[in-house]
Computed example of a mutant assay.
Amino acid sequence: MIVEFDDFEDYIQLADLLHLESGVSNLWEYKGKYYLQLVLFTEEMHDMTYNDVMALMSEYSNKTKVTAAVLSEYGKEIMSKTALELTRYYFSK
């Protein structure tokens, strides 16, 4: 799934709350906006369900029609594979 953020601060707030136990997170920049690409391994999730993740995502981000193909072709990958964890490391208060 891919979601769009109005500003980087919204993304940082989400990263503080969303601790993936099983998945991949990539952060992209495209046309002045930030996009989080999540790949969840739902069968390996124990602490959070898919619905929990979706509820958090809907509070801090927006649905988007931008696809992974568009991001990989025209976007700039800022963080790869562990974007949420890296964001907590570098931007935690």
Rank of each mutant, 00 (worst) to 15 (best):
M1F: 13
I2L: 10
I2K: 06
E4C: 02
E4S: 05
E4G: 01
D7P: 01
F8V: 12
F8D: 01
E9I: 12
D10I: 06
Y11N: 00
Y11F: 13
L14S: 05
D16E: 15
D16A: 13
L17V: 03
L17S: 06
L17K: 14
L18Y: 10
L18M: 13
L20C: 02
E21F: 13
S22D: 11
V24S: 00
N26G: 04
N26T: 05
L27Q: 08
L27E: 06
W28G: 07
Y30Q: 09
Y30I: 00
K31H: 13
G32Y: 01
G32S: 00
L36H: 08
L36R: 10
L36Q: 07
Q37E: 14
V39L: 14
V39Q: 09
F41S: 08
T42N: 11
E43I: 01
M45E: 13
H46I: 11
D47C: 01
D47V: 01
D47I: 02
M48F: 09
T49E: 05
Y50I: 11
Y50A: 08
N51L: 11
D52Y: 15
V53D: 13
V53G: 10
V53F: 10
M54P: 04
M54S: 13
M54Q: 15
L56V: 08
L56N: 12
L56T: 09
M57A: 05
S58R: 05
E59H: 04
E59F: 03
S61E: 11
S61W: 09
S61C: 07
N62E: 14
T64F: 02
T64S: 02
V66K: 05
T67R: 07
A68Y: 03
A68R: 03
A69R: 04
A69E: 06
A69W: 05
A69S: 03
V70S: 01
S72G: 12
S72L: 14
E73A: 14
E73D: 09
E73P: 03
Y74K: 15
Y74N: 08
Y74C: 09
G75A: 07
G75R: 10
G75I: 00
K76D: 04
E77K: 15
E77M: 15
I78R: 11
M79F: 15
A83V: 06
L84D: 04
E85D: 07
L86I: 12
R88W: 03
R88Y: 03
R88K: 01
R88E: 00
Y90Q: 08
Y90W: 10
S92T: 09
S92M: 10
K93F: 10
K93A: 08
